[in-house]
Design a protein around this nucleic acid. Structure first.
Length: 476
RNA sequence: GGUCCCAUCGUCUAAUGGUUAGGACAUCACCCUUUCACGGUGGUAAUAUGGGUUCGAAUCCCGUUGGGAUCACCA
């Protein structure tokens, strides 16, 4: 049978990293066996609906390359794929479940307190008195227009048992299960019900979701069993944590996918990183494209303990991706970050020095400041023990550098380096005694991306000479 | 609190009864080098704890401790 998995987010306007990882594993489980990946929007809670949220979901999935085979926008044989459009479909199943004895009508409403004959408080979800109302009577009350919900009926004896692909056998006493609401008084299903109906109707073979559903899964199994439907394969995923105590969450202000992208992380790197948060290939390789993951992914290698999201490692991995980019591609991605850079600057050259030095695109801004304008600096910047330079060395060498550069015909890194190196030889000084002062004069910074000659190339001849002259004037 | 789940370097993880407990990030040192990066080499660093079972336990069992999840007309 063809594997079918589904990603079923609710449109809250935010693509959480944990959700993205769940989607990724759902996608990979399907694709690893040539199956289908389905997108379903779960918007039964109208209060939480956020405008534009579905677009964020579409865009995120598209930019990371998780293409869905069926979904609200492209349709499919099992639509509609938005739960609110499926509204009318659930109630008949709920009523049918009542007929089958798996659920009952409850008229308690939202009234606060009820007590039985012994004065004990009645809590419907635990043991609903309404389930004792004869079915015929309950149906009459429903027909007469009395408000009601449909609650799951649970026989509180015995133990439930099921197998999860990552956690193994899970056993829970039926007594622990709540008689929860399946169909709300507004006629909408709750997640607990809609999810079972939809997964069955859409022929989902593998239900993949966060492990917070581990304890409620027996309730879903009861429904599958009562309807006589085959239970899906369960794959419950461990939580993605922010630290040892807290899960990653919107409430804590933790980064979403879009936040990370805005900070200059590449979608490919994000996907690669989160794929490894709770899964490993069994080899020592760790750089994978989503296409490669599709080939090697296997549920067996999913981990069951929670994993802490480590931005430091993601950042390293992002650096790996940035470095492996084609130079032209990198330049294209870097361009938006050059908006304050003067147009006479050689931006291609800038990109080539930046590419091996940054780990996120946002770091470009910090690296590029001195290109825009020379920061204020004191003469003591020329003092460097290792390079054997000080203010006097700089005073002596800068005019020499100026005249060499003025005569320089070919303005490339190699030829500039050659020229300055032979200047050092001619004067009998160390290379650093020429190059270090030159870099300070050109950048006003102790450390820069690239060396003096690379900066000169980026700046161009005119600006380079201008900066050297300014530095000489400053020292005079 | 009841129930369920989890537990290997700081972090992500490998090792499914026999390994000097391996790799990656981070960190430290050194090398390379016109600074900074990149790259290279090496180091520090882990089986939470107490009992079993076994010739042998990170691995299997029980307890303890620690952590997480769940107990809505939210998903």
């Amino acid at each position: 049978m063809k594997t079918r998995t589904r990603f079923a987010p609710s449109p809250t306007g935010y693509m959480h990293i944990g959700n993205l990882r769940t989607a990724l594993y759902e996608y990979l489980i399907a694709k690893a066996s040539g199956g289908d990946f389905i997108l379903r929007i779960e918007d039964t809670d109208q209060k939480r609906y956020v405008e534009g949220a579905t677009e964020i979901i579409y865009n995120t999935l598209k930019t990371v390359g998780m293409n869905w085979d069926e979904g609200p926008d492209i349709g499919g044989n099992f639509g509609p794929y938005v739960q609110s459009e499926r509204k009318d479909l659930y109630a008949p199943y709920a009523h049918k479940l009542v007929e089958l004895g798996g659920a009952h009508y409850c008229f308690c409403g939202e009234r606060e307190e009820q007590y039985d004959e012994d004065g004990n408080e009645i809590i419907c979800k635990f043991e609903d008195p309404c389930k004792k109302i004869p079915l015929e009577e309950a149906k009459k009350r429903v027909a007469s227009g009395e408000p009601y919900v449909i609650r799951q009926t649970i026989n509180k004896t015995g133990k439930s048992k099921y197998e999860d692909k990552v956690y193994g056998i899970i056993e829970i006493d039926y007594d622990e299960l709540d008689e929860g609401v399946l169909l709300k008084s507004d006629g909408f299903p709750t997640y607990n019900f809609a999810n079972v109906i939809d997964d069955h109707l859409m022929e989902i073979t593998h239900v993949v979701r966060g492990n917070e559903y581990l304890p409620s899964t027996p309730k879903y199994n009861l429904m599958y069993d009562t309807f006589g439907w085959q239970r899906p394969v369960y794959v419950h995923l461990p939580t993605v944590m922010k630290d040892a105590q807290h899960k990653l969450s919107k409430r804590n202000g933790d980064a979403s996918f879009q936040d990370l992208v805005a900070k200059g992380y590449l979608p490919e790197a994000i996907i690669n990183y989160i794929a490894l948060l709770g899964w490993n290939p069994g080899t020592e390789e760790e750089i994978f494209s989503i296409k490669e993951l599709e080939k090697i992914f296997s549920v067996d290698r999913l981990n069951k303990s929670p994993a802490i999201f480590d931005i430091v490692k993601l950042t390293w991995m992002n650096g790996v991706y940035i470095r492996s980019l084609e130079a032209t591609k990198f330049h294209e991605l870097a361009l938006p970050y050059y908006k304050d850079v003067p147009s006479n600057v050689d931006m291609q050259a800038l990109s080539s020095v930046l590419q091996p030095r940054i780990e996120t695109l946002a770091q470009i801004s910090e690296q590029v400041d001195f290109i825009i304008s020379v920061p204020n600096y004191g003469a003591e910047l020329y003092i460097n023990k290792k390079m054997k330079t000080d203010v006097d060395v700089a005073k002596g060498i800068l005019p020499e550098i100026k005249s060499v550069l003025q005569q320089q015909k070919e303005w490339t890194n190699e030829s500039l380096f050659e020229s300055l190196k032979s200047l050092a030889e001619k004067l009998g000084v160390k290379n650093g005694q020429v190059l270090y002062p030159a870099r300070i004069a050109l950048s006003g910074k102790e450390t820069t991306p690239g060396g003096a000659t690379e900066i000169a190339v980026i700046l161009g001849k005119e600006e380079t000479l201008k900066r050297i002259e300014q530095a000489i004037a400053k020292l005079a």
